[in-house]
């Protein structure tokens, strides 16, 4: 899933300077699951915005709504009846959600309440880790199901580097060396032979080369 984290309240409050009617919009998918922007977080943020205003003696109107997915036109449409009553929409979706709402409702100020961090998993309750960079050219078949692009600090394809010490990355002792993990995993699979084939330099044209990417599937198009 996409993992996000709420921006600091200072930053959010600064963004909302001058807005007295704000609609806080949550998303019921990834950011609900990663506890950054579901209905509960919408309630918390809305409450804090009211308190901040009350503390300063300002009168505000903070609306709350959570839709199934902020990245789908149909769901975003559900906001249509109320959205124009507000000075600003504070989206608690990922970057895609913020932009979908903005694109759907021209003339409405849509602001991000979250920083979208990465594609990852909850390693354990309350801790999320990055797993995939969306590079567009998956190599997991050759690396024992462990991604060197996302999980090696250097994104090395022919690791490890000299900074791998005791299974940890030199960047932080809390970070596993991805190449150590790859080695251990391939050893347990009996496929260390895979390491004997060098990776050619990565073809980044499948990533950001040529600008924003598109996936087109004509057979499912209407």
């Amino acid at each position: 899933m996409i993992v996000a984290e709420r921006k600091s309240l200072d930053e959010i409050l600064a963004m909302l300077q001058g807005c007295s009617r704000v609609l806080v919009v949550g998303c019921g998918t990834c950011v609900t699951v990663c506890m950054a922007g579901g209905e509960k977080e919408v309630g918390v943020l809305a409450s804090l915005l009211r308190l901040a205003a009350q503390r300063e003696g300002r009168t505000v109107e903070i609306g709350e709504a959570t839709i199934e997915r902020q990245c789908e036109w149909e769901f975003v449409d559900e906001l249509a009846p109320a959205i124009r009553r507000y000075d600003a929409v504070l989206s608690m979706g990922c970057g895609a959600g913020v932009q979908t709402i903005a694109q759907r409702f021209g003339g409405v100020r849509v602001l991000p309440a979250l920083n979208t961090k990465f594609i990852g998993i909850p390693e354990k309750q309350g801790m999320w880790v990055e797993m995939c960079l969306g590079c567009g050219d998956c190599v997991l078949d050759r690396t024992g199901g462990i991604c060197p692009i996302a999980r090696c600090s250097k994104g090395l394809l022919n690791g490890p580097c000299g900074g791998s010490q005791g299974g940890k990355c030199e960047v932080s002792k809390d970070t596993d060396c991805a190449w150590q993990l790859i080695y251990d995993r391939l050893a347990s699979l009996g496929r260390l032979d895979l390491l004997e084939t060098e990776f050619a330099p990565k073809d980044w044209s499948k990533n950001r080369d040529g600008g924003p990417r598109k996936v087109l599937r004509e057979e499912v198009m209407l």
Binding site: L9, D10, L48, L49, L51, R55
Partner: peptide, 8 residues
Amino acid sequence: SLLKAVGI
């Protein structure tokens, strides 16, 4: 900590 962030 949240309250602190909004000045309470």
